[in-house]
Design a protein around this nucleic acid. Sequence first.
DNA 1: ATTATTATTTACCGATCACTACACAAATGT
DNA 2: ACATTTGTGTAGTGATCGGTAAATAATAAT
Lengths: 196, 196
Amino acid sequence: MGRQRSFDTDHVIEQAMLLFWERGYEAASMAELSAAMGLNPPSIYAAFGNKQALFERCTAHYVKHVAAYAPRALDEEATAAKALRRLVSEAIEAFCTEQRPKGCLLISAATNCGKGSECAQELLAGYRQASESMIADRIRRGIADGDMAVSVKPDLLAKFVSVLIQGFAAQARDGATADALHGVANLALRQVEVSL
Amino acid sequence: MGRQRSFDTDHVIEQAMLLFWERGYEAASMAELSAAMGLNPPSIYAAFGNKQALFERCTAHYVKHVAAYAPRALDEEATAAKALRRLVSEAIEAFCTEQRPKGCLLISAATNCGKGSECAQELLAGYRQASESMIADRIRRGIADGDMAVSVKPDLLAKFVSVLIQGFAAQARDGATADALHGVANLALRQVEVSL
DNA sequence: ATTATTATTTACCGATCACTACACAAATGT
DNA sequence: ACATTTGTGTAGTGATCGGTAAATAATAAT
């Protein structure tokens, strides 16, 4: 009962996510978010609670609709080495496309935070930790499957891949081209393919 | 003539730099900077102009007193490969020490910026570009000196090293230990030493 | 039609933002 | 001693921050 919503939740979350992605959590003001979403502040607060809760909805939306390539890349390839290379390659494409903000929301949206935003920082740090764990798990599976050398240390190699992806996100924000970053990825992952 | 300053410029710039380093450009408020520097706002503005100019002084101080290891590492080693390895190793130590904020001010202090802070963003982007160029120049010198294979592409390898360093800065902010990152660096730079 | 419930709009809240006017304190030049 | 110059402290500027009270509009149940 009662009046029905005049907006599509997924659409306004998408708009808010794009602004958070470009500006970061703190620098995206509620006034800008309100304009981008096409909603007056009371509608936003009635629907989502507060800025922190809105940001959590946006990060979940990002994980589901933007970063979905990551678990797919890790799951769909036959070997761990191919999975890692595809993960890195698709990350580069996602970070450098002209259609959306450069870089990665989970990596770059809460690096500069004042006293009131530790929640956002911890939220994204958790996503980054989970991502690194997923990579390590895929490497362990590769060793168990026999397609990766037993001498490989899963946590170490997973951190290497995380470092690469985080570095690529920073480079994409600075205007690096996808071509240049693919070249770096070839250089960086060469040894992984020859099985280390 | 006139009244003399009651504070040491280098000391208050150091305090401001530490706060910018930890919080980032926008999230470090003038009130916090004022408290950290032990100066009332009018003294800060009289001495340094405005927030943007203060930030420029702090970044210059950082380059001179914190990041000084970088040009030294590149200059003092006999071969390009050793120079790159020492650069990366000292960067890791600088990013992970408990004595100061984690990570790198030039990489992380202006990633989330609103509409009034493009200047700070461009300032740091310029330092990052200069750093990558310095690395590429050292690689070119190594090739000319005959201590690095002529097949190496200087700009590509320099971008690889930059990606590593930027990734390490992000990892350090997330609490990674120096040991873990040194391990990743060994993995990443192995092929550079066997001359690629 | 009436009532209850929910959404949207307008206008505004106290707090904090970067920044400064103004008075006063401390030094130098004559 | 006196005038001039410059730094410091108090207090406050308009603007913007995240968030909301109150009135109105639109739907549902009765």
